[in-house]
Amino acid sequence: MTRAPSTQGRGLLYRLYSSRLRREIEARTVPHHVAMMIDGNRRWARQLGYTTVSHGHRAGAAKMHEFLRWCDELGIQVVSLYLLSSDNLVKRDSQELTDLIEIIADLAETLSHEPGWRVKHVGRAEVLPPELASSLRTVEERTRENTGLHVNLAVAYGGRGEIVDAVRSIIAKHNDKGGSLEELAESLTPEQIGEHLYTGGQPDPDLVIRTSGEQRLSDFLLWQSAHSEFYFVEALGPDLREVDFLRAIRDFGDRDRRFGS
C-alpha cells in the first residue's frame, strides 16, 4: 500500500516537495484517463465530530473539484469520478441520500461552468430522483460541445449493471435488424461490448486511484479497468493533497505496463 508523505500543511517544505514531484513527472508518462474512487467522506465527518455525514460528502465534493483542476493542469484528458453507486441508492438512509443528491447536483452544476470542461453522466438515469436526473441532463447538454477536460460523473452506477445494459443494447440493436441469436453469438466481441458501455468511445482508464486505504473495486468500471494500474492512498477523501495525487502520477509513470501479459 502507498502511504502519503509525512509533510503537512502548505508551507515552504510542502511547496518544494510539490515542485520536485512535478519535475519528476515531466520526464514520465502522464495517464490519458484517470478514474477516482473517493472514499472515507463519512469517516472524515465522524472523526471531526460533525453531527451528520453530509459535511464529509460536501468536503469530498469540494476535494473532487480541486482534484479535477490538478488533472487538468497536468494535461490528463479524461477523469471518471465514482460519486454514487447503484447500491448506495438502496443502502443509504433517506436523509443522507437526500443530502447526497443535492451535493452531487451542486457539484455537477459547478463543474459545468469550468471553461472548456465537458461533463457526462454515466449510470442509470432512470433510477435517480427526477430532479437529479434532470440536473445531470442539463449539465451534459450545456457542456456537450466542449473539448477540454472530459469529466465522467458515475452516479447510480454499477459495473455489473453497465455490462448487462451493454449486452441488452447489443441484443436490441441486433433484433431490430432481424438477426438471429446464432448470428449474434458468432459476431459478439469484447470491442462490441465496449462500444455499448456508458463510456463507449472513450479510452479505458490508465490509472484508478482510491482514497482511505481501501483496496477494492466496489463495482467501478469493471470492464474498462481490465488493464488499468491501481494506486491506493491512505488519506480520507477530503484530506487528499496535491502531493498525494502527484505521487500517484509519478508512480504510474514508473510502472512497466504489461496489459495482462
Rank of each mutant, 00 (worst) to 15 (best):
F259N: 15
G179A: 10
S180A: 03
D165K: 06
H33E: 08
I249N: 07
A156Q: 03
E182M: 08
V233I: 13
V53L: 14
W117F: 11
G200S: 12
H55V: 14
W70C: 11
G178K: 05
L153H: 05
H55D: 15
S80Y: 01
G161S: 07
S225Y: 02
E214N: 01
E191C: 13
A185Y: 09
T138S: 08
R257A: 09
L184I: 08
R118V: 07
A226Q: 09
F220M: 07
W223E: 05
A172F: 04
V233E: 00
G201D: 10
I104Q: 09
E214G: 03
E195Y: 09
E141T: 15
H196T: 10
R92N: 12
L246D: 03
T52N: 15
Q95S: 12
S19N: 13
T138P: 03
P5M: 07
Y82C: 06
R43F: 06
D206K: 11
G9N: 09
Q202E: 13
S261P: 12
D244S: 01
L197N: 02
R10M: 10
E141A: 15
Y231W: 10
L217K: 03
N146H: 15
A248I: 02
F67P: 03
R20K: 08
S169L: 08
V164F: 08
L236K: 00
T2G: 13
L107P: 03
E140I: 01
E183D: 01
D204E: 13
L197S: 05
S212L: 00
R58G: 04
H57E: 12
R258W: 09
D99R: 13
V34T: 01
Y82V: 02
A45C: 15
L153I: 06
S225E: 02
T199A: 08
V122L: 08
I209R: 01
R210C: 04
I209Y: 00
R216G: 00
T199F: 01
H174D: 08
M1F: 04
G161T: 02
L83C: 06
